[in-house]
Design a protein around this nucleic acid. Structure first.
Lengths: 245, 245
DNA sequence: ACATATAGTGGCTTACAGCCACTATTAAGT
DNA sequence: ACTTAATAGTGGCTGTAAGCCACTATATGT
C-alpha cells in the first residue's frame, strides 16, 4: 500500500509536540583492561540534574544530526575517548517514570570495548572530568547518578556472560598480542583461571586469529604475536569455557 | 550528593517541550506454535501512518499511566491477546531519523511467547483485525509497515539462537505437556530434527520440570505429562543442542 | 492374539574441554 | 660456557555430555 492523499495530509498536520513523549538518551559502559583489572570510564556530571555526581557517559539523541541510535553511541564514545572503531554492542533499554527526575525517561545502554593502547587519546578531548575506575570498585562502593549503577551492572553481566562462549576479549587487547596476554584478559573478566592448553586449542581451532610473524620478547622465551584475522566480528563457541574447578 | 537549591530550581524550570526529542514506542513479536509452525501475531493498522498495512502490535508509551517500559509491553500484549503472564523478553532497540515518516523515532522491540492453548482469548479483545501468520511466511513474502520486517527478524533470530542453549520453548507448550510434544516444539523453531534420547536427558537432567502424575492417552502407549517446576525462569545449558547431522 | 504405533531406555561412540607433566627457548647470573 | 629462572608451547590421558540406534514397554484397534 502506498501513500494516499489522506496520509500525506495526516503527516502535514502532524506535530510531535501535541504528544507526551519520554526523554530518550543513550548511556554507555566503556570498558578497557588496565593495570590488571577491567575498568570502566566515568564522567563527573557538569550540569543539572545530578550535578557533580559520577555517571556513565551518555546523552540525548541529536535529532538534527544523528542518523541512527548507533551513531549517537559512536559519537558519545568518540567525544569521551577519541576512539573511532570500537567493539560496540547494544545491551538493553531502561525506561520508567522515575529514573530521571525531569521526566518519564528512556535510555538505551551500550557497552564498548577498547584496547588499553588506545586510551592515551582520551585526555585532551574534553574538559570534563573523566576517570577510569575498576568495575568491581564501582559495583561495590560507588554511587552513580540516576540508575547508572544498575545499567553498568547489566553491561558488565552481559560482557561476563558472553566471554563464556565468545572471543570478545580480543577487542580488549592491542592489535597484536600473545596467547598468554589474551588468556590473561579472559581471566580478568571471568574472574577465574583458565586452563592453558584448552584455551589455546579453543582460540586456535576457531580460526579467528593469525600469526603476525613477529615475536614478543621479554625476560624469557619469546612468544608468537597474533592479530585478529579478517577483522570480522566475534566467534561463537558451541560450549562454554569452564576453567579449572 | 543530595539535591541542593540550584537543582530544585533547575527542575522547576525544566520543560520537556524545549527540546527536540524522538518519538518512542514499543513493538512486539508475539510468538506461538500453532498447526505445526511458529506463528507471529500481526495487526492491520487502523490509523495513519501506514494505514491498512500489516504490522507488529505496539504503540507509544503512555506517560501518564505506564510506570515502566516492560509495563507498556505487557499492556500491549494484554490488549491484543488477553494473555497476562507470558514469557517476555526485550530484544533490541531501533532508532533512526527515517524509520517513521513522522519524526526521528525509537522503538524498543520485545518478543513474547504464549502457549497455543491461551490463544482462544484473543478474539473479542479488540475490534482491530488481528491474524496469526507463520513466521517463515512473513519473513519470505510479506511486506510489513515501517521496519517491522527487520524487527521481526531480530526477534526471530534471538528466539532461534536461544533455543540452542536454553529451555525457552517450555513457554510455548501448554501447562502440562509430554516430552515428545516439547521436543516437537524445539524442532519447529530450530527447523531441524533433534535426537530423542539426548533431548530427554538434557531436559530431565536440567531439573526444571516435574511429572504431574497424569498421562496423555492417545492411540498408542500413553506418555507421562510434565509441568514446569518452580515457575522459575529459563535454564541455560553449557552446550548447544546439535541435533543429528 | 496380533499388528501397529508411539513412549521410553541401554549402552556404545564422538567431540571437545580439563588436567598435568613434559619439552622448548630465551635472558640473566656466575 | 654453563646453570638457573621463567615463560611458551605440546603430548597424551581423563571426563562429561551429546549423538546414535537398536531394543524394550505399553497402550489401542481388529
Amino acid at each position: 500500500m502506498t501513500q494516499d492523499n489522506s496520509e500525506i495530509e495526516y503527516l502535514q498536520n502532524y506535530n510531535v509536540h501535541d504528544y507526551q513523549v519520554p526523554l530518550t538518551s543513550v548511556d554507555m559502559s566503556i570498558f578497557t583492561v588496565r593495570e590488571g583489572t577491567l575498568q570502566v570510564l566515568l564522567v563527573k556530571r557538569a550540569e543539572h540534574p545530578a550535578l557533580g555526581q559520577w555517571a556513565l557517559p551518555g546523552g540525548f539523541i541529536d535529532i538534527e544530526n544523528d542518523p541512527t541510535l548507533d551513531y549517537t553511541a559512536k559519537r558519545k564514545l568518540k567525544e569521551k575517548t577519541g576512539v573511532d572503531t570500537p567493539y560496540l554492542e547494544q545491551v538493553a533499554t531502561f525506561g520508567s517514570a522515575t529514573r530521571d527526575p525531569r521526566h518519564w525517561s528512556v535510555t538505551v545502554a551500550y557497552f564498548a570495548l577498547i584496547n588499553s593502547s588506545s586510551i592515551q587519546l582520551k585526555k585532551s578531548v574534553s574538559s570534563e572530568e573523566v576517570v577510569w575506575v575498576p568495575v568491581k570498585e564501582v559495583v561495590n562502593n560507588y554511587s552513580l547518578a540516576f540508575d547508572h549503577q544498575h545499567i553498568l551492572n547489566a553491561c558488565y553481566q552481559r560482557l561476563q556472560g558472553k566471554v563464556q562462549y565468545t572471543s570478545l576479549p580480543i577487542h580488549l587487547v592491542p592489535d597484536s598480542f600473545t596467547l598468554t596476554e589474551l588468556q590473561a584478559t579472559f581471566e580478568i573478566i571471568l574472574e577465574k583461571k583458565v586452563e592453558k592448553k584448552s584455551f589455546r586449542r579453543r582460540i586456535l581451532d576457531a580460526n579467528i586469529i593469525e600469526e603476525t610473524g613477529e615475536m614478543r620478547v621479554g625476560s624469557s622465551r619469546p612468544a608468537k604475536l597474533y592479530r585478529l584475522k579478517n577483522d570480522s566480528s566475534s566467534h561463537y563457541f558451541t560450549r562454554n569455557i569452564e576453567g579449572p574447578r
